[in-house]
């Protein structure tokens, strides 16, 4: 049995926590500048953040907000905390950057610092390092947020007693936009989470950000 403890949604310069608007940023900023403002607003001091690609930065910030004031580490063993993330475009921004270093044979300079970020599960790795998460971890690729996949798989991990807590959601960034939807799920005596619950929460956020836009 599980329950959704907290959820966050960050897209189109707005950040919501449990449906409440927490931050909004100037809409004329590029997302790099938006992420930087959020990092500052959170008063973080984590030098590794500046080495990350934008996908990892987005996931990292989403997890920071989700786990602010959380007792996750006190309540759960590291190997019993799972992380199940979906994404659509894999690491397309860093892929493009790495490819550009190969296009000119006279100035061929592939960089290991870029290359490592051409794997989408580096974002889960960064979150695991920051929050000492050592349990089940998986990166699914899907054309859009797939609530059924997350609900079914996460519930199975709880059922099998593989985990007692889980970060789950959808972290996507591409040339046009970014979106982070992240939930903290823990075991409890309540009913298991289901696909419909996730769809309801997600659609409510989507409607809200679209309303803001107009």
């Amino acid at each position: 049995m599980t329950k959704i403890v907290k959820h966050i949604f960050f897209s189109q310069d707005k950040l919501f926590v449990d449906f409440q608007k927490q931050f909004s940023f100037e809409s004329n900023l590029n997302f790099g500048a938006t992420f930087k403002s959020l990092y500052k607003a959170l008063k973080l001091d984590y030098p590794k953040y500046f080495k990350m690609d934008s996908l990892s930065k987005l996931g990292f910030l989403a997890a920071e907000i989700l786990l602010q004031d959380s007792k996750l580490r006190a309540m759960h063993r590291p190997e019993k905390i799972g992380i199940v993330i979906e994404n659509s475009s894999s690491t397309i921004l860093m892929d493009t950057k790495h490819q550009e270093t190969l296009n000119n044979k006279e100035a061929y300079f592939p960089s290991p610092a870029n290359f490592v970020y051409t794997l989408p599960n580096i974002l889960t790795g960064e979150i695991c390092i920051r929050h000492k998460i050592q349990g089940e971890n998986v990166m699914f690729i899907s054309s859009k947020f797939d609530a059924e996949m997350i609900a079914t798989y996460v519930e199975k991990l709880f059922d099998d007693k593989k985990i007692t807590a889980c970060l789950a959601g959808y972290i996507e960034i591409n040339e046009e936009n970014y979106e982070a939807f992240l939930l903290l799920i823990e075991n409890s005596f309540k009913d298991p989470i289901n696909e419909k619950q996730l769809i309801d929460i997600y659609s409510k956020y989507k409607n809200r950000t679209n309303a803001w836009k107009n």
Binding site: P78, E79, I83, P112, V116, I122, T124, G125, E126, C128, I129, H131, K132, I133, Q134, G135, E136, N137, V138, K162
Partner: peptide
């Protein structure tokens, strides 16, 4: 089966 994370270093 199982998966795990080192939570130590990315590369």
């Amino acid at each position: 089966s199982a998966s795990s994370n080192d939570a130590n270093h990315i590369s």
